[in-house]
Write a protein that binds this DNA or RNA. Structure first.
Length: 629
RNA sequence: GCCCCCAUCGUCUAGAGGCCUAGGACGCCACCCUUUCAAGGUGGAGACCAGGGGUUCGAAUCCCCUUGGGGGCACCA
């Protein structure tokens, strides 16, 4: 019992109570609950569950954390004052829990109070997140079984924003126990992707395949096998888990039978009470056992930081849970708990798809005698049809967005706004600004459809905000790609490119659109439909005359100098003299020079093209129109 | 099937009982600017706050029910 109490205190009060060296965690700890009644279900019967955040516990936790941080609070700016009344005037909506007669409202610790939010109506959280150094630890734990998914990136971002906001530690852990599907190539893609997003972690592998950094390593699960083995053995010794000899085929058949009978799929518990003799018989058969964790019926509750109190009966968890495969490798629900405990993770911030799995994890934490972290389940990112975002229906790989020319600033900004809002009407926010304003309690509960239009807009906003030199640098790979694809004949130098920035920057929604925008400058020979040379109000003869006359004017201007300012007046004069609309003349010239009807401003384009090439393209257009006659 | 979560313009959202004849942004439409395209500016259409009951002097907001949507129920993560 004491272990659990200590554990709770440890979580709630910033884990002040945690003893022992990092990395010497649960497998050797004296903390393993030794009887089922103590470590697991017994508490339900007494009505007061150790290690569980019941409201009374929350208050305790809050008080403890208040004491811890109250000294720092005075110096901290109330940057959220615009959203919530300043301390002292704040009214809780639940009068039982915070009577007004309690005196002036004292802001609680940044995070512990959220554990209580489910216990009152509404969203009772005052949320003054203050920059108090704590040992708040969060992690992102991707599995290198595929490219970096947009949902993983968003979860990573939220963990990062939270950690940075509260001065906590952000950990990267690779969950690579699915050996069949994991690969170093995916590991690289994920690590690189997270780096690209600008999310820096304090602990974890820095480069794919590379060494770890941090006191709680290793940070790849396949290098932590001994830890899981030890934890599993202790669970077995305490009879909180048992060997299961059912084969996958048998289990499959069982599940099918249940489904046809309209029962909920659940493990029957066939191997739960085997005698030593029966086990020996299976072993003699050559069967290798998996290890199952006992799950007994009874409510398991937790206070989700985003959703409030969630209570699920363990009877609905599908029966005893396999934690170690027959081949000895551990399974996700087990490793995640063992590692979160060993790495002293204080807040588990993850997708809502894990909400129903959380009771399993809580039971495992308790069985291992470990403090239960706080949970925050983020709303899912959705396909347009409101199902969970998937590869089939949406573009999910961050790499694809990078390849199209979305930039880090735009993607971070967009992803942060998917499920969270700052509460102000400012929406274009840098990573630093996001960190400054981020608030877990302000995260939405409903899923959000991924809206590419909005992402593109935000991306354009950020491209416009980039320093021109920076934009030039980022454009490099995209121009190279254009060349490789044969859409341009040469890649311009940075100096050439830099000159173009004033006309390019505000016209670029994506870096990948650069070829479309100014590719005509870097091709040797333009290919276009000659009919395009004839503006709507003109006929072919007029176009021919217009281009020839313009050619003469431009040739003349170029003799002295060749500047945008000096090109426009004589060409307008020409149009006036001939009775043409200037726009029509300009359009004919535009197509002759670029092959397109939508381009950057014409005179800047002419300068960028250079005098000689401008004349040559005009000549060619005239020839083209002549031929067509 | 069982369990859990969710519900404000097409989309992302603001909203913390009276500041709401519901605000902002994307997208859409119109106009201004203008050599095209963008960008920018101005204006507009667009949400009886899923429906129904309560509580209250007063409900988008609190409670209940219904409906709808989603997620989870693996020797995947």
């Amino acid at each position: 019992m004491a272990q659990h109490d200590q554990g709770l205190e440890g979580v709630a009060a910033g884990r002040q109570g945690h003893q022992g060296p990092p990395g010497a965690p649960i497998a050797d700890g004296p903390t393993l609950a030794t009887t089922p009644g103590d470590g697991r279900m017994g508490a339900h019967r007494s009505g007061q569950q150790p290690g569980q955040l019941v409201p009374e516990r929350c208050d305790e936790a809050r008080r403890a954390a208040q004491d811890l941080v109250v000294g720092h609070l005075q110096s901290v700016s109330q940057h959220r004052a615009h959203r919530r009344p300043p301390s002292g005037t704040y009214h809780r909506r639940d009068p039982d829990r915070r009577p007004e007669s309690d005196g002036p409202y004292r802001p609680p610790a940044a995070w512990d109070v959220r554990a209580c939010r489910g216990s009152g109506p509404g969203r009772p959280v005052p949320a003054t997140y203050n920059r108090v150094m704590t040992d708040i630890r969060v992690r992102i734990a991707p599995s290198p079984t595929g490219p970096l998914h947009i949902g993983t990136a968003r979860t990573a971002l939220f963990n990062f924003l939270f950690a940075r906001h509260v001065g906590g530690t952000f950990v990267l852990r690779l969950e690579d126990t699915d050996r069949a599907r994991s690969s170093i190539a995916y590991e690289k893609e994920i690590v690189d992707g997270l780096h690209w997003l600008g999310l820096r972690w304090d602990e974890g592998p820095d480069i794919a395949g590379g060494p770890d950094r941090g006191a709680y390593g290793p940070y790849r699960q396949m290098q932590r096998l001994g830890l899981y083995k030890g934890a599993a053995r202790r669970l077995l010794e305490a009879d909180l888990a048992y060997p299961c000899y059912c084969t996958p085929a048998e289990l499959d058949a069982e599940r099918r039978r249940q489904e046809t009978a309209h029962l909920q799929p659940r493990y029957s518990g066939r191997c739960a009470h085997l005698t030593p003799a029966e086990r020996a018989a299976f072993e003699a058969e050559g069967r290798r056992p998996a290890i199952r964790f006992r799950i007994e019926a009874g409510p398991v509750a937790f206070d989700d930081l985003i959703r409030g109190r969630v209570e699920i009966d363990a009877a609905n968890l599908g029966g005893d849970l396999v934690i170690v495969r027959a081949d000895g490798t551990p399974l996700y629900h087990f490793t995640v708990v063992v590692d979160d405990a060993a790495m002293r993770i204080s807040h588990v911030i993850r997708g809502e798809d894990h909400l129903s799995n959380t009771p399993k994890h809580i039971l495992l934490f308790r069985a291992l005698g470990q403090p239960v972290p706080l949970f925050a389940h983020l709303p899912l990112i959705l396909n347009p049809d409101r199902t969970k975002m998937s590869k089939r229906k949406s573009q999910t790989a961050i790499g694809d967005y990078i390849a199209q020319g979305f930039i880090r600033e735009g993607l971070d900004n967009y992803l942060a706004l998917l499920g969270w809002s700052s509460g102000s009407e400012e929406e274009v926010l840098s990573l630093d600004e996001l960190v400054e304003r981020f608030d877990l309690a302000a995260v939405n509960r409903a899923g959000a459809i991924f809206d590419r239009e909005r992402l593109e807009w935000l991306n354009g906003q950020w491209i416009r905000r980039l320093a021109p030199d920076e934009l030039v640098e980022r454009l490099g790979p995209f121009l190279e790609a254009e060349r490789i694809a044969g859409r341009i004949d040469r890649v311009p130098s940075d100096v050439e490119l830099r000159v173009l920035m004033p006309i390019v920057q505000e016209r670029l929604p994506l870096l990948g659109a650069i070829g479309d925008l100014v590719g005509f400058l870097f091709v040797d020979e333009l290919r276009y439909e000659p009919a395009l040379l004839v503006p709507k109000r003109w006929d072919r003869a007029t176009a021919l005359a217009g281009l020839a006359a313009a050619r003469a004017v431009i040739a003349d201007v170029g003799r002295v100098s060749y500047e945008a300012d000096e090109l426009e007046p004589p060409l307008r004069r020409l149009a006036g003299e001939r009775g043409w609309k200037a726009g029509d003349l300009f359009m004919a010239i535009r197509v002759a020079l670029t092959g397109r009807t939508a381009t950057p401003p014409l005179f800047d384009t002419m300068v960028a093209l250079g005098h000689g090439r401008t004349l040559a393209r005009l000549d060619r257009a005239v020839a083209l129109l002549g031929d067509a006659a």
